[in-house]
Simulated scan of single mutants.
Amino acid sequence: MTTTNTEVTTIKKDISVQVLEKIDSFQQSGELTLPKDYKVENALKSAYIILADPKNNLLKKCTTESVAEALLKMVIYGVSPIKKQCYFIPYGDKLDCSISYAGNISIAKRYGGLQWIKGNAIFKGDEFAFEVDQKTGRRKLINHLQTLESIGSADIIGAYAVYELTDGSMDMEVMNITQIKTSWNQGGSKGGSPAHKNFPDQMAIKTVLNRACKLLISSSDDSVLYDPLEEEKIDVQKSDVNQEIEKNANKESISFDNVEEAVVVEEEPKVELPKETPKRAF
């Protein structure tokens, strides 16, 4: 069935009314304060460009309620689909907004006190050493020497992320390859996607970046974003881009009166609708 421009415009208008009314309600009650650098209208416009893409036409294929929920989550978390801070993933006729690793970094900067963060892969043959401060328990990079021969090889033994907080303090997250692969196995492709096979160093870096942001995000004192949500479901270790969506993924719809927690996907999704709506797993 072909969707006309008039139909698309009507759908956009109806959804926008729902989302903007809900956001206005949150703001009026003092439950939500949007970041100064985040423009709701711009975020919605960029989202509609993606959702109205004729190749997938998610505005037509997904329920209005689920699209409104996905857009509401996008706005509340202050992320942008154009910047690949989130992805819209269809599960049958239900749409979900999944926060990417870039989105989690953005959220950590806004609410978790993150100043900057930098990740690197550790290859076999590298000289790498770090220490743990006996008083604070924080890690500190002591030495990391690489060679041209080691950089970019398939022999990755780990990855780390060094970051500084707005108070000037620094910390470090380290993961060995076993931990990284365990994280990859939580995703739909089990670490077997083309991105993992062709760019394992980049995928490893993104995984450790997400892990580094996890505590900063979940320990944020921003009650709007995190107190109403179930923190344990904000699993940033599963995050990265380029995910192959499982056709039989289980997804449960929620009421538009609630805000669903951010679920991070492991790779950038290939937007593809299953042939039939999956049944809920118990």
Rank of each mutant, 00 (worst) to 15 (best):
T3L: 14
T3F: 11
T4V: 04
N5M: 10
V8E: 13
K12F: 01
I15Y: 01
Q18H: 05
V19P: 01
V19K: 00
V19C: 02
K22C: 07
S25H: 03
S25W: 00
F26W: 11
F26H: 02
Q28K: 12
S29G: 04
T33D: 14
L34C: 10
L34V: 10
P35M: 03
V40A: 10
Y48R: 11
I49Y: 03
A52E: 15
A52H: 11
D53A: 13
P54K: 13
P54A: 13
P54R: 14
K55S: 14
N56L: 08
N56C: 05
L59W: 03
K60R: 13
E65V: 12
S66D: 00
S66F: 00
M74C: 03
V75M: 04
I76S: 02
Y77I: 00
G78R: 01
V79Y: 00
S80H: 02
S80W: 00
P81A: 07
K83S: 04
Y87K: 09
P90Y: 05
D93T: 05
I99C: 06
Y101K: 03
Y101W: 07
Y101V: 14
Y101T: 10
A102N: 04
S106A: 11
S106E: 11
K109A: 01
G113V: 10
L114D: 04
Q115W: 06
E127T: 13
V132M: 14
K135M: 13
K135A: 15
K140V: 08
N143L: 12
N143C: 06
A154Q: 15
D155E: 15
I156Y: 09
G158A: 09
A159Q: 08
Y160T: 06
L165F: 05
D167H: 06
M172G: 14
M172A: 14
M175L: 15
N176R: 14
I177R: 07
Q179H: 04
I180C: 05
K181Y: 06
Q186S: 09
Q186M: 09
G187M: 07
S189H: 06
P194K: 02
A195P: 04
H196Y: 12
K197I: 12
D201S: 11
Q202V: 09
Q202Y: 10
Q202G: 15
M203V: 13
A204W: 07
I205Y: 10
V208Y: 12
L209R: 06
L209C: 09
K214R: 07
L216N: 06
L216Y: 06
S218H: 10
S220D: 05
D222E: 15
L225S: 03
Y226K: 05
P228A: 01
L229F: 08
E232G: 05
K233G: 00
K233H: 02
K233L: 05
D235T: 10
D235R: 13
V236Q: 07
K238M: 12
K238W: 06
S239D: 05
D240G: 13
N242D: 12
N242H: 08
N242C: 08
N242V: 07
N242E: 12
I245P: 00
I245D: 03
K247I: 02
N248C: 02
N248M: 04
A249F: 03
K251L: 08
K251E: 07
E252A: 07
S255Q: 02
D257F: 00
E260H: 00
E261C: 02
A262R: 01
V264H: 12
P269D: 03
P269C: 01
K270A: 06
K270I: 08
E272C: 09
K275H: 10
P278C: 09
K279C: 08
K279T: 15
A281I: 15
F282C: 04
F282R: 11
